[in-house]
């Protein structure tokens, strides 16, 4: 049987931000990181340690100072911004801690936006995804009419709308109570498994990481203080 190919390969990735003193402060220095197609992995680490920056670098939302991010076989650093947008629209799903639903759009429209810039809008699929996350009866509702747990479910449906090969989840349960957090986390994992998508989840909450086969400490991977 052919071993699964990597969906994500990170090599020598570095990113710094200028601080108030005007000096660059290294945030990410990741010598190597791989994620196989369909693999679910969690990264743990306290708030502010650079996990989100790593996800933004992987998504092509930030340009690295150095290093390489290969997503679905394509080196993002060699692509134009428009090509990176296209790769993101077709390959990635993103679940944010703050949900980031568009308040002026209904639940269905928010999910449609998840596919609008990639494969194109498919209302039936969007409705089916909302049905899958338990919100089939809330298609025309506005985000403000939903509980926080329900809003994050819509965000999960949106992240899966473009049939992504990789879903990035950034503290997806950070704004939820325990019960909702467990439900949403299970939902993310189940739906990603059903869709055959790889999942890279970052969280500072050990309880949320308990169900993952592979949990890595971001501190052990990331060595911002080391100059290479």
């Amino acid at each position: 049987m052919k071993p699964p190919s990597p969906i994500l390969e990170v090599t020598g990735l570095r990113k710094s931000f200028r601080g108030p003193d005007g000096q660059p402060h290294p945030v990410v220095n990741l010598p190597s990181f791989r994620l196989l197609a369909g693999e679910h992995r969690a990264l743990s680490g306290e708030s502010g340690c650079g996990k989100t920056t790593l996800l933004n670098l992987i998504a092509g939302l930030l340009r690295p100072d150095a290093g390489e991010v290969r997503l679905a076989g394509q080196d993002l650093s060699t692509l134009s911004e428009a090509r990176r947008d296209r790769v993101r629209a077709r390959t990635l799903g993103y679940v944010f801690q703050s949900f980031h639903l568009l308040p002026g759009h209904t639940c269905l429209e928010n999910v449609l936006l998840g596919m609008a810039f990639g494969p194109g809008e498919d209302r039936a699929r969007a409705a089916a995804l909302l049905e899958r996350v338990g919100l089939g009866h809330r298609l025309a509702h506005w985000p403000r009419q939903l509980s926080t747990g329900q809003q994050q479910r819509v965000a999960v449906a949106r992240a899966l709308a473009n049939r992504p090969q990789l879903v990035l989840a950034d503290e997806p349960t950070g704004n939820l109570d325990r019960v909702n957090a467990r439900e949403v986390l299970a939902l993310i994992r189940d739906t990603c498994r059903e869709a055959g998508a790889a999942l890279l989840l970052v969280s500072h909450d050990p309880e949320m990481l308990a169900g993952f086969d592979t949990v890595q400490s971001f501190h052990e991977l990331n060595r911002p203080e080391v100059r290479t």
Partner: peptide, 16 residues
């Protein structure tokens, strides 16, 4: 800004 950034994160081009 946040809404526009969400659109970009979902794959919208700058020109969109």
């Amino acid at each position: 800004r946040r809404d526009l950034a969400v659109l970009r994160a979902l794959g919208a081009h700058r020109r969109t």
